[in-house]
Amino acid sequence: MNLATFIQLLVGGISIGALYALPALGISLIWNAAGVFNFANGEFVMISSYLMYSMLVGRKMPFLAALPITLCIMFFLGVATEKTIVYTLRRQNASPVKALVSFIALSIFLRNAARFVWGTAPRTIPNPFGAKPIEMLPEVFIMPHALWILGISLLMMAGLLVLFRWTKIGVAMRATTQNRTVAALMGVNTNRMVSLVFGLSSMVAALAGALSGAVFFITLEMSVMFGLKAFTSNIIGGFGNPLGAIVGGLLLGVVETLGASFVSSHYKDVITFSLLLFFLLFRPKGLFKLEIAEKL
């Protein structure tokens, strides 16, 4: 293996890692805001992929029109999830196990509902970014979708950062996350803020789904794959740490791509799961201890 191939693999790995980082970010947002683990995150990714498929292939819509519509639909799906499930659980003052069971059931329900609507056959969408590799450096060819995915994901993350840091609504969301009672006393409508965080998180996951159509087949299994990988990214970066989730996702993408080319692509997922089990058993707090969490 020469340097050029290595760089190509690295860039490909980072772009796939960005796709894992987005739903991972969604999971950590919800974990911080509502204290529940969104088991159905992978299903959100899958449903947005299928929505893109329906719009691009079924309705022949342009990519730039389909993307915002998908994100909007998924935003409202996230809000609906909060209004039905999380709100009910909170009103009952339910135990964490109950919350977990209901999210597991939701994820299975969404997966089978998607099967009901779109069937089991794998779908593909035409690569919206073109299939002609670009020669970035001499002898280093990079697919345009890798750069586009990376760019759009970074844009989304930067947008979220601006929203959470410098807008009033972002401050209100952060206050709700930190201490719900005090935030409510300060005049923040905490119920609405939690709904909003759910909507945002679902939208971020949906972006990953919409972009992943360019790289992966759209199948029902991708929900499990994305769910597990987003969770693994979170564990690698330290659970509930948004920046850690992003770094963990990028790292996972790189390790997986390199592992697939060095070892065997059959065992790609086994590498991920072994990494997950290793971190859960030996470093449950993730790569970085929680110092970084204070800064974001």
Partner: peptide
């Protein structure tokens, strides 16, 4: 049961999902 010594809730359940997937892939 070794992961269950330290982990609980979503962490343990994902651990068991991963175990199930590894067995299936094998």
């Amino acid at each position: 049961s070794v992961p269950a010594f330290k982990l609980s809730g979503p962490f343990l359940s994902i651990c068991t999902v991963a175990f199930g997937e590894v067995v299936r892939l094998l």
